[in-house]
């Protein structure tokens, strides 16, 4: 393992993390809900009356974040290196699996660990491990 000191951005990572934590805090304390993106999104695909508008409001806020950012400053680089076919496979996997496993990086990784939930700790360990292995295979075995 080599540290990439040029790519490492400790201050903006910490500051952004605190903002994400504040959002998770606001959502549980104001709305009584877990800020888990896959769960909020998935609930729209099995819609229940009276349980739709808050989901759209939250997701809308996320989508307009870069639009508002661009008014004040130039957007940071968003570099998606995967090819279109790989993005389709990845998207399908992320969609099915986050619903099957009841959460993703936000619901399990941030909110669940903050709740000290044993399920979320196990889930986070699982998706980090398979994420590390997948990148290892793609970059260092297949050499893509």
């Amino acid at each position: 393992m080599k540290f990439d000191m040029l790519a490492f951005t400790p201050w903006s990572a910490l500051a952004g993390g605190i903002l994400i934590g504040l959002a998770a805090a606001m959502f549980i304390l104001l709305n009584g809900r877990i800020a888990g993106i896959s769960g909020i999104l998935g609930g729209l695909l099995a819609p229940v009356k009276g349980d739709i508008a808050w989901r759209l409001a939250f997701l809308g806020g996320m989508v307009i974040a870069p639009v508002l950012w661009r008014i004040a400053a130039s957007l940071p680089t968003l570099e998606i290196t995967a090819s279109y076919p790989m993005l389709v496979i990845a998207g399908l996997l992320v969609g099915i699996s986050t619903r099957y496993g009841s959460g993703c990086t936000s619901g399990h990784g941030v909110c669940g660990i903050s709740r000290l939930s044993p399920r979320s700790l196990a889930a986070t360990a699982a998706f980090m491990t398979s994420g590390f292995l997948t990148v290892f295979v793609i970059r260092h075995v297949l050499g893509v």
Binding site: M86, S97, A126
Partner: peptide
């Protein structure tokens, strides 16, 4: 929980993208 999370990690590792 475990199978779902493992599968999610594979998709995350392919694209570098999670839902948020």
């Amino acid at each position: 929980l475990i199978l779902g999370s493992l599968g999610f990690g594979v998709g995350w590792g392919i694209a570098g993208l999670c839902p948020g």
